[in-house]
Design a binder for these strands. Structure first.
Length: 578
RNA sequence: GCCCCGGUAGCUCAGUUGGAUAGAGCAGCCGCCUCCUAAGCGGCAGGUCAGACGUUCGAGUCGUCUUCGGGGCGCCA
C-alpha cells in the first residue's frame, strides 16, 4: 500500500516536472511516505512538498496543492488533504482496507514475505565463539540476533546461508587440552593442579569424564610428574604447563585428548544453540584454511600486492595503507602465525563463494578488528564493501543489583543453557531480540525469572492462543462460516485499527530487513496484539449476526496468521493454548 | 590520549532515515469477568528527550563541544 502511494506521488511529480513546475534533479531518490502519528491525519502522509519547497523556491502549501491536483485517481484512495505546514495526507478507502483481510487469508504464511525488490544472496556468520567453554548469556544475544536476522532476511526474500567459524587450533585449544588432562588426572585419583589461566569451569570435568568413559583404556599415564608452576607471568606459567604436559604424555596422547575436547566442546555448543532454536547451515573450522593451503595463498596474495614487510623478526601487514590506525602482525617473531592471518584466509574464502554480501555479526569488543579485516580484503584485491560487519553490544548480567562477572577462563559465567532452562526458549529469544543491537543489554536474572509471566512474549502468544480458542468455541457451537468475505455495513473503529495494523506487516518486514533490525518485528507484534486484545474486549465475536460474525472471524483468522508469521521470524512458538 | 556504542517518564526501552501535540511495558492510583482464556481491557498520573551552542521553515533525530556510563585500542584470542 505504501508503495502504491509512493507510485501515485511519483506520477504526480513527473507531471509537474513536465509542466515546468519542478526540475527532475530536485526529486529525491526515495519519496518520503510515512504513517502520521495522530489519528485524523490520514493513513499515509508525505512531506515531499516540504522537502521540495526550498529547492524549487515555492511555498510548501502551494506546492503541496499542485502535487495533490496532479495525483492520478486511484480507487483505494478515499481522499487526500493538505495539512499542517504542507503535508499531503492520504485517506485509504474502507473497502481497500477490508480487502487486506482477504489478502492475508489467500497468501497465508506467505503474507508479508518476499517484499524486497532486488533479493541478495547473503552469507551470514554469527556466534563463532571459541570452543573453550559452553556458551554464556553474552553469546546468547549474538545467537538470537543472528538467527532472527537470518529468518528475517529470508522472509523478506533474500537467500541466506549461515555459518559458525570455529577457532580449532592455537594456544587456546592447547589450554583446553591441558585443562582436561588435569581433570582426567583427578578422575584417576592423582593429584592435579589447576592454576589460574587454565579453564576452571565444571564443564571441564564433564569433558574429562566423557573422555575417560570413551578412551580411558587407551591412555598410558606413566609416571605423573610434579608440575612446576612457580614464577613468571600468568602466560608464562600456562605456556610452561602446556610444555610439561606435552612432554609427559607425548604428542600423540596429548593430541588425542585435545581433539576429543574440541569435538566434545563443539557438540556442547551445538546443543546450547539448538536449545534456543538456533541451527547454523555450516560450521567452518580454522584448520581447514591451513590444511587447504588457503592460508599460505592469502599471505602470498598480500605479499604479491606489496603490502607485507618484515620488522623486528615479524611479518607485518600494511593495514594502515587502507585506513587502519596501525599495521598488524601476521607472523610473530617466533614464527607462529597470528589468528588474524587465518581470519584473513577465512574471510577471503567467504568472499569468493559467490555471495553478494558477507555479513559478520561480532561482539562489540571486536570493533577494533573491522578496519584491519576490511583492509586485508582490499589488499588481497577484493571489494571490501561486500564484507559487512555489524556489532552487537554486550549483554551484562545482573542478579538484582549485583553484576555477575563473565569469564570463561575463570569458569565464572551463567551459561546460556541454564538461562534457557530457567525461563524457556521463547522468553529468552524474545527478551534478547527486544533490544536493538547497538543498545547495551542489562540482563537481570532475578527480573527475567520473576517477571517471566509478564514478559511481552506471553502477551503476544496469548493473543494467538485466544484466537485459537475462539475457533475451538466456534466448532463446539457448530457454527459454520459462510465463504463470503464481505463486510455488511460499516466497520467499527477497533476493526479498522486492527486491519490497518495488519496491512503494515509487509512494510515492517521490509523496513526491519533493510535496517537489519529484528526488534522492529517484536515491537510490531506487540502492537498488533494490543489492537487485537482491545478488539476482543470490545466485541463478542461469536454472538454477532452471521454476516458480521463471519467477517470478524475472518479478521481474527488474519490476525492469527500474521502473529504466526511474525513469531516464526523471531523463532518463537505460536501456542494454541496457554 | 584516540576510537566505537549509549544517556528519552520512578525502572526497562521504542521513536518509521529531519516533520504535525514525544510513545509502550513494568511499578503507582481508579474502574471492568452472569459473557468466545482477566497471561486481558478502559482510565488517571508521570518528560528541561544528559547539558550548551550550531545547521533550517522545522531537531529526540544532523554537526561541534561538555558531561556521565559501557566497550575497544597487544608479536592475546
Amino acid at each position: 500500500m505504501k508503495h502504491k502511494i509512493r507510485q501515485l506521488l511519483k506520477q504526480s511529480l513527473d507531471q509537474l516536472v513536465e509542466g515546468g513546475d519542478l526540475e527532475l534533479a530536485m526529486l529525491p531518490a526515495q519519496i518520503p511516505v510515512e504513517h502520521p502519528r495522530r489519528a485524523g491525519q490520514g493513513d499515509y502522509a508525505s512531506g515531499i512538498a516540504l522537502g521540495l519547497a526550498r529547492v524549487s523556491g515555492q511555498k510548501p502549501r502551494d506546492l503541496a496543492g499542485k502535487i495533490q491536483a496532479a495525483l492520478p485517481a486511484a480507487p483505494f484512495v478515499e481522499s487526500t488533504e493538505i495539512a499542517g505546514p504542507g503535508f499531503i495526507n492520504f485517506f485509504v478507502a474502507e473497502q481497500a482496507l477490508i480487502e487486506v483481510v482477504s489478502e492475508v487469508l489467500d497468501e497465508r504464511d506467505k503474507y508479508g514475505t518476499k517484499v524486497i525488490e532486488n533479493p541478495h544472496k547473503v552469507l551470514l556468520e554469527y556466534v563463532s565463539a571459541n570452543p573453550t567453554g559452553p556458551l554464556h548469556v553474552g553469546h546468547g544475544r549474538g545467537a538470537a540476533f543472528g538467527d532472527t536476522l537470518a529468518r528475517l532476511l529470508r522472509s523478506a526474500g533474500h537467500q541466506v546461508d549461515t555459518e559458525y567459524y570455529v577457532n580449532d587450533i592455537g594456544r587456546q585449544m592447547d589450554i583446553l587440552g591441558v585443562s582436561v588432562c588435569m581433570r582426567y588426572l583427578e578422575l584417576e585419583g592423582q593429584t592435579a593442579i589447576v592454576p589460574q589461566g587454565v579453564y576452571q569451569g565444571m564443564y571441564v570435568r564433564d569433558i574429562a569424564a566423557r573422555f575417560k568413559r570413551r578412551h580411558g583404556r587407551e591412555i598410558e599415564l606413566g609416571e605423573v610428574p610434579r608440575f612446576e608452576v612457580d614464577g613468571g607471568t600468568l602466560d608464562e606459567v600456562v605456556d610452561s604447563l602446556i610444555r610439561q604436559v606435552r612432554d609427559w604424555l607425548g604428542e600423540a596422547q596429548f593430541e588425542m585428548i585435545r581433539s576429543f575436547a574440541l569435538a566434545d566442546m563443539v557438540e556442547v555448543i551445538r546443543a546450547d544453540l539448538e536449545a534456543i532454536g538456533v541451527v547454523h547451515d555450516s560450521w567452518f573450522f580454522e584448520s581447514q584454511v591451513t590444511k587447504s593451503g588457503e592460508l599460505e595463498e592469502a599471505i602470498n596474495d598480500l605479499e604479491k600486492n606489496g603490502f607485507l614487510y618484515r620488522s623486528g623478526g615479524a611479518r607485518w601487514f600494511q593495514s594502515s595503507e587502507f585506513g587502519d590506525e596501525k599495521d598488524r602482525v601476521l607472523t610473530r617473531s617466533n614464527g607462529e602465525l597470528t589468528y588474524f592471518a587465518s581470519d584473513i584466509a577465512y574471510h577471503l574464502n567467504k568472499l569468493r563463494r559467490g555471495h553478494d554480501y558477507v555479513i559478520n555479526i561480532w561482539g562489540a569488543d571486536h570493533h577494533g578488528y573491522i578496519a584491519r579485516m576490511k583492509a586485508a580484503m582490499q589488499a588481497a584485491g577484493e571489494n571490501a564493501e561486500r564484507l559487512r560487519i555489524y556489532l552487537v553490544q554486550f549483554a551484562a548480567l545482573y542478579r538484582g543489583k549485583q553484576k555477575i562477572p563473565m569469564s570463561t577462563r575463570a569458569g565464572e559465567f551463567v551459561s546460556l543453557a541454564e538461562l534457557v532452562d530457567e525461563i524457556g526458549q521463547d522468553a529468552t529469544r524474545f527478551f534478547y531480540v527486544l533490544r536493538k543491537p547497538d543498545q547495551h543489554l542489562d540482563f537481570d536474572l532475578e527480573l527475567a525469572k520473576s517477571v517471566s509471566n509478564e514478559n511481552p512474549v506471553y502477551y503476544v502468544q496469548y493473543a494467538h492462543a485466544r484466537i485459537c480458542s475462539v475457533f475451538r468455541q466456534m466448532s463446539e457451537r457448530g457454527i459454520v462460516r459462510s465463504t463470503g468475505r464481505n463486510l455488511p455495513g460499516r466497520a467499527e473503529q477497533v476493526e479498522l485499527n486492527l486491519i490497518r495494523r495488519i496491512s503494515k506487516f509487509p512494510e515492517v518486514i521490509e523496513s526491519a530487513a533493510q535496517a537489519l533490525e529484528p526488534h522492529q518485528i517484536a515491537y510490531y507484534l506487540r502492537d498488533l496484539s494490543t489492537d487485537f486484545h482491545s478488539f476482543y474486549n470490545r466485541v463478542r465475536i461469536l454472538d454477532g449476526e452471521p454476516p458480521l460474525r463471519d467477517f470478524r472471524l475472518n479478521l481474527i483468522e488474519a490476525v492469527q496468521q500474521v502473529l504466526a508469521n511474525g513469531l516464526e521470524i523471531l523463532g518463537v512458538s505460536a501456542p494454541e493454548t496457554m
